[in-house]
Simulated scan of single mutants.
Amino acid sequence: MPKIFWYYCVVAIGIGFLIFTVIKKKDIINLLSFFLSVASLGYLCEVLVLFVLDSYAYKPGVFSDPTAENILGHLICNGFFWGGIAVFVAAFSLRAVWIAFISIAFMLVEIWFLKVGAYEHHWWKLYITGAAAFVIFTFSKKWLSALKENKHKLVRKLTFFMTAWIILQSCSVLQSLFDKQHFLIGLVQNVYRDSILFSVPYQLCVAIIYSAFVSIHNKWYYTIFPLVINLIADSLFAFLKILNFYNGWNLFYFEFIRIMGFIIFILLEKYTLLYPSPSSKNVKG
Rank of each mutant, 00 (worst) to 15 (best):
F252K: 04
F81W: 03
F17V: 09
F265Y: 05
F92C: 12
F137P: 00
R258V: 05
I28Y: 13
K25I: 06
T163V: 09
L236Q: 07
A86Y: 07
I111Q: 15
V206H: 01
V191F: 12
G186D: 02
G261H: 07
V173W: 01
L227Y: 03
L227F: 01
W123Q: 10
F101Y: 15
S103R: 09
V188N: 07
K281L: 13
L36E: 06
W6I: 05
F80G: 05
T129D: 05
I166Y: 05
D194S: 09
E269H: 10
A96M: 14
I232W: 04
L168C: 01
L236Y: 01
A12G: 04
N244C: 08
P60S: 14
M1H: 08
I209P: 11
F63C: 00
S215D: 09
W123T: 10
T67S: 13
F63K: 00
I28Q: 05
S199D: 08
N190L: 02
V52K: 07
F20V: 05
N150I: 03
Y43L: 08
F17N: 08
L41F: 15
L273C: 00
K180I: 13
F198Y: 11
N70L: 09
I85D: 00
I111L: 15
W249P: 04
F134G: 01
F256H: 10
Y192W: 05
V87S: 11
A207I: 06
K151M: 09
I232A: 03
Y222R: 00
E69P: 05
F252H: 01
M1L: 10
I266A: 03
F137E: 05
L158E: 06
A105G: 14
L50H: 11
P66C: 09
I242L: 02
F80I: 07
M1V: 13
R193S: 04
V11S: 14
L36N: 08
N230H: 13
Q169V: 11
D27V: 04
G248I: 00
A12D: 02
F17H: 02
I196N: 06
L204S: 09
E69S: 06
L44K: 00
Y221F: 11
V22L: 05
G14W: 12
N78F: 09
F252T: 08
L50A: 12
I196G: 02
A91I: 08
Y7S: 06
F139T: 15
